[in-house]
């Protein structure tokens, strides 16, 4: 086969695969959008929380999967977004889009202030620095009376949209959170496909080579750290819009660890895989835990061990393997 023929063959596969992906994406979106029409308030509320948590998980994936920086600090920016959105809700406006924007900016600014030191390190040192950042922010939330200290921040009124009435029904809040999460997902997907996303993957794979090509990896890493902070802050605002209550537990170590776990289970670097991981992790923690006598963490631990041994590239890696096998056969 000549080089030109090969290129054509590769290009020939692409449109079909892209079309297939688009069909799946639309089907998933329709199913998600239809959920409140068929499900009760409780499952819808669970799905709302999963969506908000999935946005946090996307931010962890941006750092861990795309840039190769495993992090335990994203819950801090998630919390910054959640607290800010709740404060805006209590003191300024119930408009959800303003709260969302406030949460985004809070996550971005907090990450920008704390990230410059962290991005100088990589690997385990980076992990420990992000852990320290997470614990410090958690300490602040736990002791600062303005945000309710260890009692948390309650009394946030229901959100409104575009000057309409308060959204009291779980379904309406869900639709708002779904719409926002889809926009964030699309934005992150665009970043991953952009030249900047390529730069980040280059840093993940071979930082020394990037420097030899004239790149300044620390700068690019700082950029993605701020970006991930903004994404996590957005997730926090969505979380607050649904829960209308924020407590220090929402930005604790457990949340950070579960977010990282979701990325590992779903497949670091893929975007939809970690979202599935987020759903699995939250379901096990909040819904399955009671059924197994409160041993949710144990189940998660077993799932984690099983994934590491059976699916080193997570759920997304499994799917890619099946696709490759099919193509090999056809």
């Amino acid at each position: 086969m000549s080089a030109a023929e090969r290129t054509q063959a590769v290009d020939g596969i692409r449109p079909r695969r892209t079309a297939g992906k688009a069909v799946v994406a639309v089907a998933v979106l329709l199913l998600l959008a239809a959920a409140p029409l068929v499900l009760g308030a409780y499952p819808v509320s669970t799905m709302t929380r999963i969506l908000a948590f999935a946005v946090l998980v996307l931010s962890v994936d941006l750092l861990t999967g795309v840039t190769g920086l495993p992090t335990l600090g994203q819950a801090a920016y998630f919390g910054a977004g959640a607290y800010t959105a709740a404060l805006v809700g209590i003191h300024l406006t119930s408009d959800a889009s303003v709260q969302l924007l406030a949460g985004l900016v809070a996550g971005l600014v907090t990450a920008a202030l704390t990230g410059w030191v962290a991005v100088r390190a990589r690997g385990v040192v980076f992990l420990m620095l992000t852990l320290a950042i997470g614990e410090s922010v958690h300490q602040v939330a736990d002791t600062w009376s303005v945000v309710g200290a260890s009692n948390g921040l309650a009394g946030m009124p229901p959100i409104t949209l575009f000057g309409g009435p308060p959204l009291l029904a779980a379904g309406f809040v869900y639709w708002w959170v779904l719409a926002a999460a889809v926009v964030v997902f699309a934005a992150v997907a665009l970043v991953v496909r952009s030249p900047y996303g390529r730069t980040l993957r280059g840093i993940r794979d071979n930082e020394a080579r990037m420097r030899a090509l004239g790149y300044r990896p620390a700068l690019a890493r700082y950029g993605v750290f701020c970006l991930a902070g903004a994404v996590a802050g957005t997730g926090g605002a969505l979380w607050a819009a649904h829960a209308r209550f924020v407590s220090p537990g929402d930005l604790g170590f457990e949340v950070a660890a579960l977010a990282l776990l979701s990325v590992v289970i779903g497949g670091a670097g893929s975007l939809w895989g970690p979202c599935l991981g987020a759903a699995l992790v939250l379901l096990v923690r909040d819904n399955l835990s009671a059924a197994v006598g409160g041993h949710g963490p144990l189940v998660l631990g077993l799932v984690f061990v099983a994934v590491v041994f059976l699916l080193p590239r997570g759920v997304a890696g499994l799917a890619a393997g099946i696709r490759r096998r099919k193509e090999g056969l056809s």
Binding site: S194, Y196, G197, R198, G214
Partner: peptide, 13 residues
Amino acid sequence: RVHRVAHRFDRAA
């Protein structure tokens, strides 16, 4: 890097 677009994230590569 030479084309100075290495940090653009507004469009697909």
